[in-house]
Amino acid sequence: MVAVEPYYCHQCGTELIERRIHGRDRKSCPECGHRHFRNAVVSVDVIVRDGEEVVLLDPAAGGPWELPGGHPEFDEGPEVAAVRELREETGLEARAPDLDLLSVVHSVHGERHYHMVTYVLDRAETAGEPTPGEEATAVEWWSVDRALSSPSETREIDREALRSVFVRE
């Protein structure tokens, strides 16, 4: 499994060739026969809510404000990764059993495909005060109305998740 297009076999180092496998053109090793499948990357985020407010961070790398989150390490489940990312990015402490699964959606960003796992957590189930970690320049409580009505300041995938929690049709 790889998230980016490989050029060399990670098993033996031989340059890869294209072959038709399972109805798709895929990279394959002519030396050892290993087939290289390009897979979506798992990503997690957390909606921390306090009434009609949510925690958003201003990413140090630039771009719109976003929910805290990131990618699981190779030895982490998504719940553990969500708790770690929340702590690293916002300073808020939480426990994995307190997370409520909201959704798992497919997302595309550039050439990468993601499976975004979103959790919801009540402020009462966290400890600490929001403080930016090294991946954020700021962490703030935003009203849900502000987040939903600020398409130039927030990510669409985050607004979709917020709508599914807060907007009742």
Rank of each mutant, 00 (worst) to 15 (best):
D75P: 13
E73K: 14
P68Q: 10
P97N: 06
L86S: 05
G128E: 06
E73H: 13
P64G: 15
A61T: 11
E31N: 09
P64L: 09
T131S: 15
H115Q: 15
R87E: 13
D25N: 04
S103I: 01
R49A: 14
F74A: 15
P30V: 00
E66N: 03
G91Q: 08
G110K: 01
H106N: 15
G23S: 03
E66D: 05
V104N: 08
V44I: 04
D25T: 06
H22D: 14
R38C: 00
D98L: 07
G62R: 11
G91I: 13
A127M: 08
A94S: 12
P72D: 11
D122G: 10
H115Y: 10
E135A: 15
T118Q: 01
V120P: 02
V105E: 15
H115K: 13
L99T: 09
H115W: 11
L92Q: 04
E66F: 08
R112P: 01
G69A: 09
E52G: 12
C29E: 02
A94E: 04
L92N: 05
H22C: 05
D45N: 14
E93C: 06
D122R: 14
G91H: 05
L102M: 06
A94H: 02
V54H: 04
P97E: 08
P132D: 12
G51T: 12
T90R: 08
R24T: 01
H36E: 10
A40I: 01
R19H: 04
V48S: 07
V83R: 02
A40F: 00
C29A: 01
H109K: 12
D100G: 14
G77F: 03
N39W: 00
P72G: 13
W65Y: 12
V54A: 08
D25E: 05
P72W: 03
S43V: 03
R20A: 06
R20I: 07
A60S: 15
C29D: 01
D75K: 13
I21Q: 01
T131G: 09
C32H: 03
A127Q: 11
F74T: 15
P72E: 09
H71S: 15
A40T: 06
L86P: 00
E76L: 10
H36T: 00
P72H: 09
H36V: 04
G62Y: 02
G133P: 00
Y114K: 04
V108G: 01
A81M: 04
T131M: 12
V105C: 05
S107R: 13
G23W: 05
R112E: 13
A60R: 15
S28E: 08
L56I: 02
P30K: 00
A40R: 12
E31S: 11
T131N: 10
V105L: 11
P64K: 10
W65N: 10
A82F: 02
H71G: 15
D100C: 12
Y114D: 05
L56P: 01
R84L: 07
D50C: 04
G128W: 00
D45C: 06
G63E: 04
H106F: 09
Y114N: 08
G51F: 12
V117W: 03
P64E: 12
E52M: 15
R24A: 11
A61H: 07
G91M: 05
P130S: 13
A127I: 03
E135V: 04
P130Q: 09
V117E: 03
V108C: 03
V83I: 13
D58F: 05
E53C: 12
K27S: 07
L99E: 05
V83G: 05
L86I: 08
A94C: 10
P132V: 14
E111I: 02
L102A: 10
E53V: 10
